[in-house]
Design a protein around this nucleic acid. Sequence first.
DNA 1: GGCAATACTGACATTTTTGTCAGCAAGGAG
DNA 2: CTCCTTGCTGACAAAAATGTCAGTATTGCC
Lengths: 122, 122
Amino acid sequence: MKKLEITYKEKEFYTSKDLALSVIGGRWKIAIIWCLLQQSPLRLSEIQEKLPDVNQRMLIRQLRELEDDHIVTRFVYPVVPPKVEYELSEIGRRLEPVVTSICNWGDQFLNHVEKNENESHS
Amino acid sequence: MKKLEITYKEKEFYTSKDLALSVIGGRWKIAIIWCLLQQSPLRLSEIQEKLPDVNQRMLIRQLRELEDDHIVTRFVYPVVPPKVEYELSEIGRRLEPVVTSICNWGDQFLNHVEKNENESHS
DNA sequence: GGCAATACTGACATTTTTGTCAGCAAGGAG
DNA sequence: CTCCTTGCTGACAAAAATGTCAGTATTGCC
């Protein structure tokens, strides 16, 4: 991890880890990236189907932020009705180890929680 | 990643990834975990020195949440003045791949940003 | 008694994030 | 004309996260 003073989008960061967290730390961003790692490109409506808990407004906002950070690329097809496709960029695809390690740890944590529950029930 | 309906601390999760994010998603949690991966145990005052941007109140709150989730263990020494040490639990230490992959991606992202800046200056 | 050092808490203010609702744009189909 | 679909935006409300400030407890030392 690089350690130096970085200015990105008018905010200052002291480590690249903190910079990373500011980019992928949004409420639904890991979920969106996880979707797009599984299948790409996806239309907005398709992402909505895969993430039914996220309301459209929120989804668009998070996608827009990811686009601003060049994690996601947006293709607009000039047709009616509109068609827009989202895809991970090169740097976005490199988030795969992050998403994978979070998923793996989540599984381990869940096992851990379930084990403790069983013990407390006995 | 396990996919099932999980209830944890009165909230419902559909994937273990979302559960994981709810546990490690606090503003300073990755930073705290990163600290404790480097050196353990640490006293509160030592963590404060390593994370000067986090105010004490916030640091204690995040530590308490991590403790409630069994990520961090807290040892109180019954002395005056008080001495308290924090340490990662077994499941907490397994977050090392998550932290490492975030750091690595942060480095790559930073290189990416710097490269684009240079290109736009030419 | 008064003070020191460390860890911590309560009450509250502020900021940030997230959610909700209504509405717009495009052009073809009916 | 009017409606349809899809993607999107603005204004605002609500909730959650974070930050600030003052204050507590302990007990040994001067």
